Amino acid sequence: MRLGLNIGFVYGGDDHLDHLRLVKEAEALGFSVTWAAEAYGSDAATLLSWIAAQTTTIDVGAAVFQIPARTPAMTAMTAATLDRLSNGRFRLGLGVSGPQVSEGWHGVRFSQPLLRTREYVDIVNAALRRETVAYEGKYFTLPLPDGPGKALKLTVRPIRDHVPVYLAAVGPKNLELAGEIADGWLGILNDPGFLGEQLNHIKTGRAVRQQDLDGFDVVVTTPLMTGDDIQAAADPVRGYAALYIGGMGSREKNFYNALAVRMGYAEEAKEIQDLYLDKKHREAMAAVPFGFLDSISLLGDKARMADKLTAYAEAGATTVALTPFASTVEQRIADLRTAAEALELSGVGN
C-alpha cells in the first residue's frame, strides 16, 4: 500500500504555494501521487501542470476532471499533454459530478450518468491510443454525421502507451462500472469496515472483463489530523463531513448522504441533511457522529495511525490519499511526516 496526497482546490491568496510545499514534502517522503480536484472554482488541469513542472517523481492525478465540463476529445488532449509534460506521471480521474453542478454550472443534463461515463471513457481511451476516432453513441457521436466533420487522430503522443483512468464512484452501479472500465477507483468517506462491501461491487465489474482486483488501484480518501485528544483531532473534519452528507446535492438526490445511510448512519444522515439544508451549518457539523469521523479518518498519534493503515490494507486499499486538516501548512507538513512514519511502523507499505 502507498500513500498519496490530496491538495484539493485553489481558493485564492497564497494557498497554491502552500499546496506546492505539501507536494514537495510528500515527494520527499516517497508518496506515490498527489491529486487535485475541481468543482466550480479552480480547474485541476492548470494546477496539476504547475505542480508537475516543479516535481520529478511524484505522480500528478486529477480527482477529478468533471465529465460535463469537457468533451471527451478535450480530456484526451489534456491528459496526453499532461502525461508528456510530466514525463509519464499523469493519472486521469474522471467523475460525472452531480446534478447541481452539471446542470447549474456546465449546462449539461444529468441524465444516464453510467452510460454517459461509459461512452466518454471509450472515446478518451481510443483517442489516447491515437486511433482515428469515430464513435456512435447515445450521448457522443464523432464525427457529426450531417456536416463537414471528419474523424481525427490525436496529434500529441502521451509518454506511456496507456494513461491510467480512475473513476470517482459512490453508488453500487457506478462502483461496478469502475471495476469494468477503469484502472482504479477514487473513493471518499472510506471506512475500512465498509470497504469490503464496496469492493464486492468493483469485483463484479472486474469479472465482466474476466479480471480480479490484481493491478487495480483502490484509492481511499482519508482526512488526516494528529493529536493526543482524538475527539479534538476529529473536530476539524466535521465541516467536510457535514458538507458532503448534508450539502452535496438536493434533499432528493445526494449520493454521499445515501452512502452514509448504507454505512449504517441513516438517522444521523437525515438529521445532518435537514440541518444543513436549513442553513444550520454549525448544528449540522455538531450532528456528525464522532464514530463516523473516526472511521473515515486517520487520527491521533503514530501508533494509532499505523493500526488504521493496517486496517485499510487488510480491507483491500492500495493507496491511502491523505487530506491534511491542520490549520497551518507547517503542521500539515508535520502530519504528513507522522503518517509516513506510521506507514513504516505498520509494515504494510510498499
Rank of each mutant, 00 (worst) to 15 (best):
D14N: 09
H19N: 13
H106I: 01
N6R: 09
G93W: 12
F90I: 04
G88W: 10
E103Y: 10
S42P: 02
Y11W: 14
A79C: 00
D43A: 04
F9Q: 00
H106W: 07
V23M: 08
T81G: 04
A37E: 15
T81M: 13
A80P: 11
L85R: 09
P72I: 06
R2A: 07
L47I: 15
T55G: 04
R21F: 04
I67K: 15
R91Y: 14
E27A: 12
S102Q: 06
W105E: 06
R91G: 13
F9D: 07
L29M: 08
H19Q: 14
A62F: 13
L5E: 04
G88S: 01
A26R: 09
A45S: 15
A52H: 06
F9W: 03
E103S: 03
K24R: 15
T75M: 05
T34K: 01
F90W: 07
E25W: 02
A73K: 07
G107V: 11
L94V: 06
G13W: 05
V33C: 03
G104V: 01
W35R: 07
H16D: 13
A45Q: 14
D43S: 13
G107P: 05
P72A: 03
R84W: 11
S102W: 03
D59C: 10
W35D: 05
F9I: 05
H16P: 08
M77S: 08
A80S: 09
L17P: 01
T75K: 07
V10N: 11
L17D: 08
L29A: 08
A36P: 01
S49E: 02
A36M: 09
D15G: 00
S49P: 00
D14K: 08
I58D: 09
R2H: 10
A80G: 10
R2G: 05
G8C: 07
F31L: 02
W35S: 09
R70E: 10
E25R: 10
G30S: 07
G41N: 12
K24S: 06
W105I: 14
A36S: 12
L3D: 02
G61P: 00
Q54I: 02
R21A: 11
A53H: 06
A79Y: 05
I58S: 04
G8P: 06
V33T: 15
T46Y: 05
G30I: 12
A39C: 13
S49D: 07
T78M: 15
W50G: 02
S86L: 08
A52S: 15
M74Q: 14
E103G: 11
A76C: 11
I67S: 14
Y11I: 10
T75I: 14
L22T: 00
S49F: 08
W50E: 03
